[in-house]
Write a protein that binds this DNA or RNA. Structure first.
Lengths: 113, 113
DNA sequence: CAAGACGTTTTATATATATCAAACTGAATC
DNA sequence: GATTCAGTTTGATATATATAAAACGTCTTG
């Protein structure tokens, strides 16, 4: 992952409202999640539910979701008049791998001659 | 980790200059790293080196280091007139664990009766 | 103790951004 | 087609913050 993308993803998560949004999407609340009728696969969580949970205006929630989407952390699906949001697992995984590389390097042993 | 701390750590990393600082500290450049003479354990990287690598003014670099320090991601050590900085592994690890929990939950199987 | 070296803190400023109201868009319904 | 519904985009504003100059604190050295 390039640096710009890593920073964009960190910025996207570095806000209480957006971190909360991601947590809600990670939990997939049964009531407000659109699923495939046959296998139960989750398509996403309804915008209205996210708005309720955040207690922020619709424009503000929409703005935060856009930031997360442009960072590749979530995806949106339109179904008629409603919009459903869900995590993009690849986005979060990419960031996790990037951050894991920042952990202290293991000691390089130099064997005695 | 509480939410405030997680956001503070994400904010701290969500800046090009600070992410670069953390990367430099993760790499521990031999030339500018203070080590224990006997075992070679790294105490930290000299401030002057970080200033050089970032190409920003000393006050700005000092500001960024303070943000990282207050987020618990790095530590500072004074040695005479010089200051050395190093990663605080626990800080980054804590954040990584926090983010790992955001990954999609495994499917809860409901066995047929 | 005076002078210099190395960072930090304070202050000022310009940019970024979180928030909401108002206006807009596209889909469903009458 | 007109109206309503569900979000999004635009515009305005207040707050946060990245940056550097100036002032300061602290340690070393003459």
């Amino acid at each position: 992952m390039n640096e710009k993308l890593a920073v964009a993803r960190l910025k996207a998560l570095a806000d209480p409202a957006r971190l909360k949004l991601v947590r809600i999407l990670a939990d997939l609340p049964d009531e407000h999640t659109l699923r495939d009728e046959r296998c139960g696969t989750a398509y996403g969580v309804c915008f209205c539910h996210l708005e309720d949970r955040l207690g922020l205006s619709a424009p503000t929630v929409s703005h935060h979701l856009k930031v997360l989407r442009e960072a590749g952390l979530i995806e949106a699906i339109r179904a008629g008049r409603w919009t459903y949001y869900r995590l993009n697992p690849a986005g979060l995984n990419g960031l996790l791998q990037e951050l894991a590389e920042l952990q202290p390097k293991p000691i390089r042993l130099e064997l005695a001659q």
